[in-house]
Amino acid sequence: MNQDRSDGIAPQTVILMAVAVGVAIANVYYNQPLLVDIQQGLGVTPAEAGFLPVATQLGLALGILLLVPLGDLLERRRLLVVLSCATAIALLGMALAVNLSWAVIASLGIGLTTMVPYLLLPLANEWAKPDQQGRVLGTILSGLFVGILLARTVSGLVGAWVGWRCMYALASGLMLILVLALHRLLPESRPQIKTSYAELLLSLWHLVRSQPLLRKSSLLQAMLFGCLIAFWGVLAFFLAGPPYNYRSAVAGMFGLVGLVTAFAAPRVGQMVDRSGSDRIIGISIALVAIALLILLFIGYSLWGLILGTVLLDLGVQSAHLANQNRIYRLVPGARNRIGTVYFVSSFIGGSLGSFLQTYAWKTWHWPGACLTCLLMTGIAFLVHGWGQE
């Protein structure tokens, strides 16, 4: 069956997509609470175990660059099913890992094949009516945010009860269930273009050159995402010292603020449909700036730290939603390649944020980290001021 664009996207299809992106993106984050258990199970050092999340993120970046553009060339349901099967195999490989090299290769494979979120978001935008695109993206992104949050919580609990290998075996089984659900319930979707894979990749640069709004959205979100990564990179260190002196478990609990964003995402999507992406992005950047000022001046009190963290996450993710809503409209036949440019830019921004926060924390501690984030937010504000949507 093919999706009829004139009827919009069916509510049950939106729910399927939200669940699918949540189940899939969780695979990337299972290893974070399990690193100590994996380290002990494989008999490696903490530094060596640290290669596993790096390999996963590297695989994710490579997959976005090399596999997501295929969504503009191949039938999407079949592509999603094949990649999800590959993810299940990689997860099973992780569960059976007997040494570090095996585990690194499996982690790379998990990241490389976890492309369900990055293929379903542009597909949902394509199927949704113009006046419902923001709400649909918001609903699906709420599934993604919940998946990230639950991944860290569930993997920690499962790892403590039955071991980290069981967590990966369970995740592999979940992906096989997702494969069946996608195959049976997701409509077919055949792209209209016919070209070679090499030409498909080369067209990424043409899109960057020919679409100023894509450049603007990508740079803007790179700065905001870099700001978010920089903040989370120093939060644990800040909480470990005075005036808090909290343990790492408490720092992990701050991740639950993402629930606010998860529940707010559909509402933000409706606001995007009514008011337009440009206005919501401007409000989101202002929200991020307010959050950082709260963190800078009132972050030494617990309520100020919690409030600032909630507003920061909500602002960055709201801008993320609105940016996707407008870039996927630029070239209807190139939504996946547009998403590739956008997400690769976000990864670069995240890397820049990580680099800057390391130096800022070492030199100026909390004030330096907050000011660095404000600097990146200021750049995002200037980029947002370059012309109108």
Rank of each mutant, 00 (worst) to 15 (best):
A10M: 03
Q12A: 15
L16N: 04
V23T: 00
L34P: 05
G59L: 14
L60W: 02
L66Y: 10
D72P: 09
L80D: 01
V82T: 15
L83V: 02
L83N: 02
A88P: 02
I89H: 06
I89M: 11
A90W: 07
A95F: 05
L100I: 13
A103R: 06
I105A: 14
I105N: 08
S107Y: 12
M115E: 12
L120P: 00
A128L: 11
D131S: 13
Q133F: 01
R135L: 12
L137H: 02
L137C: 04
I140W: 02
V154F: 05
G163E: 08
C166F: 14
G173C: 06
L174E: 12
I177S: 13
R190I: 11
K194P: 06
S196H: 07
A198E: 03
E199I: 00
L200E: 01
W205N: 14
S210I: 12
L219A: 15
L220K: 00
G226C: 10
C227H: 05
I229A: 07
W232I: 02
P242Y: 13
P243C: 13
A249C: 08
L259T: 05
T261M: 04
D273I: 07
R274C: 08
R274T: 14
S275V: 08
G276N: 07
S277A: 04
S277R: 05
S284P: 02
I298F: 12
G299D: 12
S301Q: 14
L321W: 02
Y328K: 00
R329T: 06
R329C: 09
V331H: 05
R335E: 12
N336D: 08
I338V: 09
I338A: 02
T340S: 14
G350H: 01
G350Y: 05
G353H: 02
A360D: 09
G368P: 08
T372D: 09
T377M: 04
I379M: 10
I379P: 04
F381T: 14
G385S: 15
G387Y: 11
Q388G: 11
